[in-house]
Design a protein around this nucleic acid. Sequence first.
DNA 1: AATATAATTAAACAACTAGTGAAATAAAAT
DNA 2: ATTTTATTTCACTAGTTGTTTAATTATATT
Lengths: 220, 220
Amino acid sequence: MTIEEAKTTRDEQRLRDPERTKFEILAVATQEFANRGFAGARVDEIAAKTRTTKRMIYYYFGSKERLYVATLEKSYEDIRVTEQNVDVENLDPVTAIRLLAEFTFDRHEANPTFSRLVSHENMQNAQFVTAASGFPGLERPIIKMLEQVLEHGRADGVFHRDIDALDVHMLISSFCFFRINNRYTFAANFGRDPVEAGRRSIYRQMIGDVVVEYLTSSPT
Amino acid sequence: MTIEEAKTTRDEQRLRDPERTKFEILAVATQEFANRGFAGARVDEIAAKTRTTKRMIYYYFGSKERLYVATLEKSYEDIRVTEQNVDVENLDPVTAIRLLAEFTFDRHEANPTFSRLVSHENMQNAQFVTAASGFPGLERPIIKMLEQVLEHGRADGVFHRDIDALDVHMLISSFCFFRINNRYTFAANFGRDPVEAGRRSIYRQMIGDVVVEYLTSSPT
DNA sequence: AATATAATTAAACAACTAGTGAAATAAAAT
DNA sequence: ATTTTATTTCACTAGTTGTTTAATTATATT
């Protein structure tokens, strides 16, 4: 269900739908928190962008902070679900690792909201992500997949680097994250918008090449 | 002059020192804006952490926004100065590019404040960096150096990739930036703090290897 | 030394913001 | 038919926050 669906479907059958109300609040709040951060977001503004009222936000979520945490949890859960749909089981390691890199590349581009939430969390030392340990979606499927591909690649003798899944993930994520999240200052500083449509395929191939060349090369 | 110097030197000779007052406000404001962002920072808090009063901030900087822009300008200028002190003129291209990568790596670690300011700027679509065009420090020395090294490397036949300085810079910066700025969520999500002292040399070498292997490998 | 200028302090203002309380309404569930 | 639950309205508080008015005093100038 998208926000638009939730909005348009409303009132057609039921005048009251707690699930839909909660969903809409959460969806709007996610956008607001992603765009302005926890401190910058305004409860009144979130309420105004929903079909419901500020009072309902407190009715269902209790406080601005609990609403914020709820958006974080939902966003992490969504990422986990997305990653579960990737399958590189039967591919050769080089193809598989490139595919995982491209998947992460696409995910960042398709869902900048998540990256923005993450960025804001880091700017406040991840206080809410850390506080809510037992956070759902913390075992990220992508890591398991990377581990298998790396093991496979080493067994086949095509990967020669002594590096584990977490660091490969960091290498891939950093590039994809930076391209999306630092788009504006990069464009302002260097006169090149890295998210410009025409350059997309260049960067998508680039991160794949970077990872493949690194893993397949030998330490000196 | 550091903040500490400005604080301790104060009052020894003169009770009033506009330059020192301005400097201290700017230094404290930079920390506050870097830590909390423009919206999250509090003028009262900035004032409280200086030796002077809130009124002086308005006396010298006019508004919170102009103070913020001043910290941005100062920070960019500092980076430019730092980059000007790098010299890779007489090194072979592979050594030079690795040195530039390591320089950027070190710079991010030594100055997380700048990265945080940049991150916050991006979260608000770089509205202030963009607005203040004619911004000082926008021609970054590192780009010129990368251009020369890349040209040299291609002339020598050791670099085979068709990639320009800006994209190499993005590859290097993204890794260094992510390691520092996404430290907290990365640690919370994956149980590994990428800024932990013991892992520093691994990542420092890794970004060098990644860039060198990518540039020296051939497109397929 | 007298005066003017610039730096500094103290306090107040006005707008904003998260959260609450209370009361009323009515759709759904029982 | 009755109870429960979801929803709206709206005024209000208590605390915060960016900004300003006015008075004070150190330093520079004449």
